[in-house]
C-alpha cells in the first residue's frame, strides 16, 4: 500500500475510487448517480478541461506556468468558428496552428530575453483576450453548422463522444512521449534542475518553447472543439477553464516545483475533478458548490505542496507536544534543562 500511495500518478485514481464511493453514499440508492448520463457528462467535461490541463501540466513540469491558455481557449474558439464554416477541419487546424505559433513566440521570448513565464504569459493572456474581442467585434458569434455541433457531441459507445475520444488520444500520445522518448526525459530534466540539465547537455532553450507550443496547441484544440460543440464563440471567459484545469493538473500529481507528474496521472486528476463536479450536479447541489469544491481542493493542494509546510508543521507539533502533553518533540517526557 505504501509504495502505491507514494506514486504520484496512482494517487488520483485512488481518490477517484474514494469519491465514487462517497457520491454513491450521498446518493443513497436513488440511482441518480450511477447512470450512463453521468458518465457521459463527466467525459464531456473531461473533453473540455483535459487538453487545457495537459498543456498547463506540461508547463508546470518544466517549472513554468502558462497563464495564456485562458485567452487561447476563447481566441481559438473564435478562429475555429470564423474560419471553419465550410470545412470544420480547416477551422480546427488554423486554431491549432495559431496556438503553436503563439506558444513558440512566448517560449522564444522567455528564452531570448531570459524572462519568467508568469509575466510573459500574463501579457499573452491579455493580448489574446483582446484579440478575441477584436476578431469577434465584441459580440458572441454563432457557428452555423449545427450538424458539426451535434457530431462532435454524439455519444460513441454510449459514454464517449468524438470530443472526449480526441482528448484521450491526446493524453495517450503525450504519455508515450513523456515516458518513452528522449524529449520526455529532457522535459523532466529541464523541470527538476534546469542548470544541471543544461550542464548535462539538454537543450533547455529548445525544450521551453516546445513545451509552450504544446500548451498553446492543446488549449487551441480544446477551445476550438468546445466552441464547435456549443456552436458559439465569444471573447469573454478569460479564466473560466484556467482554475479547474490548474486544479486538475495538480490533483493529477504535477508538482509546482517542476519535474514531477505524468500525463496518465493527469488523466486521473481531470477525471477526479470532473467526477466531483458532475456528481455534485447529479445529486442536486447548486452550481456554486462546484466552485467551492474546486477552490477548496485547489487550496488544500496548494498548502500540501507548499515550500515551508514541513517546518511549520514541525513547529506546531512541537508546540502542541510541549503545551498539552509535556513532552519534547521526540516524545520523551520533558525535563528542565540545566540552562533554564
Amino acid at each position: 500500500m505504501r509504495p502505491l500511495l507514494a506514486n504520484r500518478s496512482v494517487r488520483p485514481y485512488l481518490l477517484l475510487v474514494a469519491i465514487t464511493v462517497v457520491l454513491w453514499i450521498l446518493d443513497g440508492g436513488q440511482g441518480r448517480f450511477f447512470t450512463t448520463a453521468t458518465a457521459f457528462s463527466v467525459l464531456q467535461q473531461f473533453a473540455t478541461i483535459g487538453p487545457i490541463a495537459l498543456g498547463l501540466g506540461l508547463s508546470m513540469i518544466i517549472r513554468e506556468f502558462d497563464l495564456s491558455v485562458g485567452g487561447m481557449i476563447s481566441l481559438a474558439g473564435c478562429i475555429a468558428v470564423l474560419t471553419g464554416a465550410s470545412h470544420p477541419e480547416l477551422g480546427v487546424a488554423l486554431a491549432v496552428l495559431f496556438g503553436l505559433a503563439w506558444g513558440l513566440f512566448q517560449g522564444a521570448i522567455m528564452v531570448w530575453l531570459r524572462l519568467g513565464s508568469i509575466g510573459v504569459t500574463l501579457g499573452g493572456l491579455l493580448t489574446l483576450g483582446g484579440l478575441a474581442y477584436v476578431v469577434t467585434g465584441n459580440l458572441s458569434i454563432s457557428y452555423p453548422r449545427m450538424d458539426v455541433a451535434l457530431a462532435v457531441n454524439r455519444p460513441v459507445l454510449s459514454i464517449f463522444s468524438f470530443r472526449s475520444l480526441i482528448a484521450f488520444a491526446v493524453f495517450l500520445v503525450a504519455a508515450f512521449f513523456m515516458a518513452r522518448t528522449r524529449v520526455g526525459r529532457d522535459v523532466y530534466a529541464t523541470g527538476s534542475d534546469r542548470r544541471a540539465a543544461m550542464v548535462a547537455g539538454v537543450r533547455t532553450s529548445a525544450i521551453i518553447p516546445a513545451v509552450f507550443a504544446c500548451s498553446g496547441m492543446l488549449a487551441a484544440l480544446g477551445g476550438s472543439l468546445l466552441s464547435y460543440s456549443l456552436a458559439a464563440a465569444s471573447g469573454e471567459a478569460l479564466t473560466d477553464a484556467l482554475v479547474p484545469a490548474t486544479a486538475a493538473a495538480i490533483i493529477g500529481g504535477v508538482s509546482l516545483m517542476g519535474g514531477k507528474g505524468t500525463p496518465i496521472g493527469m488523466i486521473g486528476g481531470v477525471l477526479v475533478l470532473c467526477l466531483l463536479r458532475a456528481g455534485l450536479n447529479a445529486v442536486g447541489t447548486p452550481p456554486a458548490v462546484q466552485d467551492i469544491v474546486t477552490g477548496g481542493v485547489l487550496f488544500l493542494v496548494a498548502i500540501a505542496d507548499a515550500v515551508d509546510l514541513d517546518p511549520r508543521l514541525f513547529a506546531i507539533r512541537r508546540y502542541c507536544a510541549e503545551m498539552f502533553f509535556r513532552r519534547d518533540d521526540l516524545g520523551r517526557p520533558r525535563q528542565a534543562s540545566p540552562a533554564e
Binding site: 497563464l67 509546482l256 467551492i292 474546486t294 496548494a302 498548502i303 509546510l309
Partner: peptide
Amino acid sequence: FRANPIIVSMAALALIT
C-alpha cells in the same frame, strides 16, 4: 507555508465566487 501565490489566489477566486 510559502504556498504558491498564483494557485492560492486562484483557489480564493473560486472559493469567494
